[in-house]
Computed example of a mutant assay.
Amino acid sequence: MIPFRKMNGLGNDFVVVDARRHPLTLSADRIRALADRENGPGFDQFIVIEPAEAPSVATMRIINADGGEVEACGNAARCVAALLLDETGGPEVRIASAGGSLRAWRAEGANIAIDMGPPRFDAASIPLADGAGDPLALTFDEADLAAYGPAACVNVGNPHAVFFVPDIDVVPLTTVGPRFETHAAFPQRANISFATIDGPSSVRAVVWERGVGPTRACGTAACAIAAVGNRLGRLDPKVDVTLPGGTLSISLVDGRIVMSGPYALDWTGAITEGGYIRNPVPAAV
């Protein structure tokens, strides 16, 4: 059996497996089966904690519900950071990931803060297809997609496209989200956000997450919205981004993005040969 923790950040939920002592090998098919919310524990991302070289305490691997591995997940990073901070007892930890090295520490209340690194606005880093257009004002030829205006694109460890719209509540996310995600402009696909600005420090957003679909919250999307909004002169360096699952505080500090928000341990369980079991009492960290 493979023990795991079921965790979430603002409803963006994860199965977290500590594989630092015993390497984990699960097929993409098995991960997709476990992601099924009726027959498995269900999750947006499957998180694997693996060994790392100093100064990182551990490596975080992120596998979406569709079985594809991705570079970054801000909400999962807070969950993993909380476990590692409890384990080490130190004031901060560093976590290696495919999207870059992350520094994490305890913030106000029970929140965890993560230095997500600098946003990258150039087309090659996002990445955009050759000749796609201006990364901060990317337009689309399809009439129904063009109706949402230009996208402001950025890489915050993974690729994002942000559409600032008058009212997120009327966006048909499940219809346009997958079309933008897989558009030819995004050779590695993209996370798609629609954001409504309520003031220079307050934004509401909904997110179609690459390889997942609609999600209660997306930490890197909140970072992307704050970064492009500030770059365009529409948002202050510190902004609250409210998603369906709750609010994240995002600050731009010396050219880097700092995200702060909550995390939760929901329950524990184990992956078995034929499925999974759920434990009634959370295990000690």
Rank of each mutant, 00 (worst) to 15 (best):
G219M: 06
T182V: 08
G157W: 09
G131E: 10
E108F: 13
N12E: 09
F140V: 04
A151Q: 04
M60V: 10
R20P: 05
C153S: 02
G213R: 11
P280Y: 09
G229P: 07
L252Q: 14
P119C: 09
R78S: 11
V80P: 06
A185E: 00
I250N: 02
P280R: 05
N8P: 04
V203K: 01
A226T: 06
L10H: 11
A222W: 08
Q188K: 15
G74N: 02
G177F: 10
R32I: 13
A123I: 05
M259V: 07
E50S: 15
I62H: 03
L235Y: 07
N279Y: 15
D141V: 12
G229R: 04
D240W: 06
T272F: 11
D86V: 09
A58M: 04
V154E: 07
C223R: 03
S260R: 08
D167L: 14
A58N: 05
F43T: 13
L102I: 14
Y276G: 01
L232I: 09
V241W: 02
I2R: 12
V154N: 07
S97T: 15
A222G: 06
A284E: 11
S249L: 12
V156A: 06
G177T: 10
A96Q: 11
D44W: 11
H183I: 12
F163S: 01
L83S: 00
Y263D: 02
A58R: 06
R37E: 14
D115L: 07
A195M: 05
F121M: 03
N75L: 08
I271V: 14
D115T: 02
L248F: 14
I2H: 04
N158E: 00
P23F: 11
A76Y: 02
P166M: 05
E69R: 13
P280I: 14
A227N: 06
E50C: 13
S101H: 08
V203T: 03
G90W: 00
V212K: 04
V93K: 03
G131K: 10
T247P: 00
W267H: 15
A19G: 05
A147E: 14
D86H: 12
A96D: 13
L85W: 05
